[in-house]
Write a protein that binds this DNA or RNA. Structure first.
Lengths: 205, 205
DNA sequence: GTCTATAGGCCGATAGAC
DNA sequence: GTCTATCGGCCTATAGAC
């Protein structure tokens, strides 16, 4: 029936509105500010609808996290297949909206056991993707201690960019310019060495 | 009067008990779990005493932070004057109790404006101390681009150790061994270069 | 699927007796 | 300085009408 389809679409629309509102609050005011009432206020609907569509609050947070993880996975894959993958990963990790939300989820994980497992699983997933990628990259360069560096490099990139975003949120920027310049320089150089412009240009023919 | 002195001592004891309880809860369950009632329960006293001794909750958090900052400053100074200062700073930043609490205060800063300024001020203070210290160290080594590195090095050390502690809290340890080995090695080497054992041994005579 | 109404809990904070 | 008592607020979550 057409009415069933319409109802389903409407339901999806409400779910999206709730998730969007939750995400906005979480980004701007932190996970602690996310409540069914604040979501309702932001999305322009009644707080009980949150429970109707998502069950308990834990499930809402899980749904939001999974949506975010999917989105991040796409951006992550794009960064990895860029001509300068290390620098692209670095810039992606520097994106304030993305990283800010990730940090909030980590904070949330300290409070809610059901969330912690998901965050941990997701973090390990991306870490594994990055380590594998960098390992291949270093091997193709003939680097000797590729095993250690392939773990260290992605870890440092993510940790440092995360710290930059965190401090920016606190209104601090001491030394940030130096850190940005240093990593842009070093990562670009490594990218250029692993994926020389000539090879790329030849490969595309 | 002796009774006045006794009362003052008792008051200090209560204040300490409250701060200790708040710190314990914050460490174990996160800043969101710190409430006057939970403090009272943990410290074995009435929740109203929290307000009597500290005014509003913001002031309690400020008092706790300042106590913690003082403690950290002492440890920080000790690390800087160690024979291998960079590695000592690295190990200090890796201390879970210290770093875990710092991270909770950063989260708290997202919620409470009055706290944010204090956290930012303190972070800048330590950053400045570290940058100055590393700059002198690199200059004595005759490093050319000492200005950039003196900003990058402390930033990376703090960011990476913070990320290690954070992940450990989530139950993740993928690649941690490699990161630990790498930084221990690199920082120790830099320390040894700047403060050779012979120079130290001669200077102490 | 959305509404009104409401139960039950923890919170910050204050007033006033002792 | 510590006690009892209490107010008002925001929260999660559910019941039941439409």
């Amino acid at each position: 029936m057409a009415s069933e389809r319409k109802a389903r679409e409407h339901s999806l629309k409400t779910r999206k509105a709730i998730l969007d509102a939750a995400e906005k609050i979480m980004r701007e005011e932190g996970y602690a500010a996310v409540s069914s009432r604040r979501i309702a206020e932001t999305a322009g609907l009644k707080s009980q609808l949150v429970y109707y569509h998502f069950g308990v609050m834990d499930d809402l947070f899980l749904a939001l996290f999974q949506r975010e993880e999917e989105r991040f996975f796409v951006e992550h894959a794009r960064a990895m297949s860029a001509p300068n993958p290390l620098r692209a990963l670095w810039r992606l990790s520097l994106d304030p909206p993305t990283t800010r939300l990730t940090q909030e989820f980590v904070g949330l994980a300290n409070e809610r056991t059901s969330i912690r497992k998901e965050i941990a699983r997701s973090k390990q997933r991306f870490r594994s993707l990055q380590t594998t990628f960098v390992a291949r990259m270093l091997e193709s360069l003939g680097v000797g201690d590729a095993s250690e560096l392939s773990h260290v490099l992605p870890f440092v990139v993510v940790a440092v960019s995360s710290a930059l975003v965190s401090e920016k949120g606190l209104g601090i920027s001491d030394g940030h310019a130096a850190v940005l310049a240093y990593f842009d320089k070093k990562l670009s150089a490594l990218d250029a060495e692993a994926f020389p412009a000539e090879a790329r240009s030849l490969a595309s023919h």
